[in-house]
């Protein structure tokens, strides 16, 4: 058990180190701007006095290392500075949008994970039948499609041809949960189709991989039913790769929301990030980039930890 603890501590320390390096990269990136932020924002025509005043306001006159630490300290305390575009606090802009993005990703995950695992098991159970082929063709094409293609096809079908779901998912705090779910149905479905395809293929592959082991042959020779072999003997042994894939796909979901949010004009963090990039609103880009990175790194970390816990082979120190 001690081995497990040291390995977990090591892995978590690595995650924290990665985040620190990412924050340094994000910070240096802005430093590398030609000229500096003040000139970039105020434009060519600004007088030297205005530039100097603006610099003072953003504390650009202090040395970079000092600024990095004060920026980092601010980030940890939830203070990301002010937006350049409208002067509002970045944390205020980001807060409810991040919650919205998590809501979208969360609902998708709750629907997608069980469906993907069940379909994957079924595809492994009925391997090489028309059902398996149908599933493998449809997942291969979903993986090949860009997300916005899937999204627009769904809009064309479910929002224009049959007027069932809205094509624009604007939600606000006054809506009830049911109304919210109705509004975000299409973006959820788009994301779900993409992640289900990935997770299902991996689940199927993991189970089929286990099916070649001797203990499965033993179970077959004992005359057990195929469904019992898969659910009782193969599934527990395939659990570790499956858990890993699920966690990786959750991490993908967090990033995948960006494109889908833009398609459906959903007020999430991805939409804000894209808008801020085109407006070059750097504090907002820094903050939302950092939050995305944090979520992504945390979920990847979780994937590794869960894999270690569920698979004793990985617990052996190398």
């Amino acid at each position: 058990m001690d081995d497990l603890k040291t390995m977990l501590t090591k892995r978590i320390a690595l995650g924290v180190a990665t985040l620190l390096v990412i924050s340094i990269l994000i910070f240096i990136g802005v430093e590398a701007l030609p000229g500096d932020l003040a000139e970039a924002v105020l434009g060519q025509s600004a007088t030297p006095e205005t530039v100097a005043a603006f610099r003072k306001e953003l504390k650009l006159d202090l040395p970079p290392v000092t600024r990095y630490f004060s920026w980092l300290q601010g980030c940890v305390q939830g203070d990301f500075g002010n937006s350049l575009a409208n002067g509002r606090a970045v944390s205020e802009l980001i807060g409810w949008r991040f919650a919205n993005s998590l809501f979208l990703a969360g609902v998708t995950a709750i629907v997608a994970v069980p469906v993907a695992i069940i379909l994957g098991i079924l595809a492994a159970l009925y391997r090489n039948t028309w059902f398996d082929r149908l599933i493998s063709i449809s997942t291969l094409s979903t993986i090949s499609f860009p997300e916005f293609f899937v999204a627009y096809i769904l809009i064309a079908l479910l929002s224009v041809q049959l007027v069932v779901f809205p094509s624009i998912s604007s939600i606000n705090e006054q809506m009830s949960l049911f109304e919210k779910l109705h509004v975000i149905f299409l973006p959820c479905l788009t994301l779900a189709l993409v992640v289900i395809a990935h997770m299902m293929r991996m689940t199927r592959a993991a189970i089929i991989n286990v099916l070649t082991s001797p203990f499965i042959e033993m179970a077959e020779l004992k005359g057990l039913k195929r469904s019992r072999i898969i659910v009782r003997h193969a599934l527990p042994n395939a659990l570790s790769p499956i858990i890993n894939v699920v966690a990786l796909n959750l991490a993908y979901l967090v990033v995948g929301v960006v494109v889908v949010e833009v398609v459906f004009v959903y007020p999430g963090l991805g939409q804000l990030l894209v808008d801020s990039v085109s407006k070059r609103d750097i504090p907002v880009v820094q903050a939302s980039g950092l939050i995305f990175a944090m979520t992504y790194v945390t979920l990847n970390l979780l994937a590794d930890v869960m894999a270690m816990v569920s698979n004793p082979k990985l617990r052996q120190p190398k």
Partner: peptide, 12 residues
């Protein structure tokens, strides 16, 4: 995440 990295670099 690649997309986020690319977006940040492009913004700069």
């Amino acid at each position: 995440p690649t997309l986020i990295f690319a977006l940040m670099v492009l913004s700069i």
